[in-house]
């Protein structure tokens, strides 16, 4: 296996980079979308409940089915995997953002208003910072899920380490099949761990000091 890695380290590094960059970009986009949407709906409990329901139903749909549905629209390749990964990444963040914003103590919002803060300032300085740890937990869930979905998306020629896994599948019986699949799988696990550590670190740095441990 070491020979295999040594032989292909350039390709391996490139695909790892592609995989990580795909996931990070999609999760970032998903965070922006989900938090924006949550801010928009969280004041109305009924729409917020609907958002929760959509999130639950959306996660029920198998990722491979969604990829299939997207191909006629976005073609085979990167666009399809970006849309699919972003779709699934949005759902857990949306749910957590709604829960987090709903969990902010209403007396705190009241006092912010009493101090003369407007709706936007209350949101930015009180509600979002207090909901941030919960939102971030959603982001971590998203990131890990996206890693797996990005691997599946390699079947429709999305970028990333999934291509090693599918190479292993098509070359089954050949001498490098196991190496290829193993390198792809372990690579995804490794990237998931690295990204999770980065997100934990980002969480420490971005959590408001008042509610930090």
């Amino acid at each position: 296996m070491w020979d295999y890695i040594a032989e292909r380290h350039a390709q391996l590094l490139y695909q790892s980079y592609q995989h990580l960059s795909l996931v990070i970009q999609c999760v970032l986009l998903a965070t922006v979308l989900a938090v924006g949407l949550a801010v928009f709906v969280h004041r109305n409990p009924r729409i917020a409940a609907l958002a929760g329901g959509v999130s639950a139903i959306g996660l029920t749909i198998p990722s491979f089915a969604l990829l299939g549905l997207l191909i006629p629209l976005a073609g085979i390749g990167t666009a399809t995997s970006v849309i699919a990964v972003t779709f699934y990444a949005t759902l857990p963040i949306l749910r957590n953002a709604v829960v987090g914003l709903a969990g902010v103590d209403s007396t705190l919002i009241e006092s912010a208003r009493g101090m003369g803060m407007g709706a936007v300032r209350t949101l930015l300085r009180v509600e979002l910072p207090l909901a941030w740890p919960v939102i971030l937990a959603g982001v971590r869930v998203s990131a890990q899920m996206s890693m797996g979905i990005a691997a599946i998306a390699a079947y429709v020629l999305g970028p990333g380490l999934g291509s090693f896994i599918f190479t292993g599948l098509t070359q089954i019986g050949g001498k490098n099949a196991l190496n290829s699949a193993l390198v792809g799988t372990l690579g995804v696990v490794l990237l998931a761990l690295i990204l999770d550590a980065l997100l934990l670190l980002a969480g420490r740095l971005t959590t408001s000091r008042g509610i930090r441990v």
Binding site: A151, I165, G168, L169, L178, A181, T185
Partner: peptide, 13 residues
């Protein structure tokens, strides 16, 4: 944490 497609392919090998 392992991607499920990787798990399936490895088990199949």
């Amino acid at each position: 944490a392992a991607p499920v497609i990787g798990l399936i392919v490895l088990l199949a090998i």
